[in-house]
């Protein structure tokens, strides 16, 4: 199989380059893209990428495969490269540290900005706070986010304003707390999102929805935040 791999080491390289590599894949098994990377690394240990759980739940190995963001560990090679040539690049829009490793601090900063923790001013009961199954249901499709950054780095608005637009991942979590019946900081959360950038830079491009490896829908969550802002404003 032909592989084109993005390489960059800031200590030795002036600018990044795409390396053309050949790899014999084992017969009869549809490897994941991460398996391909591991095979390449066994040959050339200097290839750098993040990986850990190798089952799509830790969110380490978000990369760009043939132009599409996704998790290397749960993307079959046949799906990433249906025409046989696999092109691997780092997630777009974030500074590259080395090879497929990007500097995610801007992404994490946006996550922190929405204050991603439950706020409840009432004294906690001796047992759990009660929540109806219907209220709990509202958190589905939100809390499952693994912070892989596939969505935010596929979002043109995030490329343009990574410092001010919270981005799909952060907004999905913002809504996760807005939607939680146990959270009492709804007004404060909404006030913090009301500026022209944090939420309103979303243009509904929906790249986030099409790349999310967990099948989540940040655009819908953003729409719901806007609706909440509107009904609060009126």
């Amino acid at each position: 199989m032909q592989i084109s791999l993005y390489r960059f080491d800031p200590d030795t390289d002036e600018s990044p380059r795409m390396d053309s590599l050949e790899l014999d894949l084992p017969e009869g098994r549809d490897l994941m893209v991460l398996d391909v990377l591991e095979l390449l690394k066994a040959e050339d240990s200097s290839i750098a990428y993040r990986r850990s759980c190798r089952e799509g739940v830790c969110g380490s190995d978000g990369i760009n495969m043939n132009g599409r963001n996704g998790l290397a560990c749960i993307t079959p090679v046949s799906e990433a490269a249906p025409r046989g040539k696999l092109t691997l690049r780092p997630l777009p829009g974030l500074p590259v540290v080395r090879d497929l490793v990007v500097d995610m601090s801007q992404f994490y900063r946006q996550y922190e900005k929405i204050e991603p923790w439950l706020v409840n001013d009432t004294a906690p009961p001796a047992r759990e706070r009660l929540q109806s199954p219907e209220d709990r249901e509202k958190l589905n499709g939100l809390y499952e986010c693994i912070l892989c950054a596939c969505c935010s780095t596929a979002c043109p608005s995030f490329w343009w304003n990574p410092d001010k637009f919270v981005g799909p991942a952060g907004l999905l979590q913002a809504y996760r707390f807005l939607a939680d019946s146990r959270d009492t900081a709804t007004a404060e959360r909404l006030a913090a999102l009301e500026d022209p950038f944090s939420v309103f830079r979303c243009r509904g491009i929906m790249n986030c929805v099409s790349v999310c490896p967990k099948g989540l829908n940040p655009t819908r969550a953003i729409g719901k935040i806007r609706t909440m802002l509107l009904s609060q404003g009126i």
């Binding site: 759990e128 706070r129 009660l130 209220d135 709990r136 707390f177 939680d180």
Partner: peptide, 8 residues
């Protein structure tokens, strides 16, 4: 209390 979204 910290917010863990347990099934109910």
């Amino acid at each position: 209390h910290m917010g863990l979204p347990f099934t109910r």
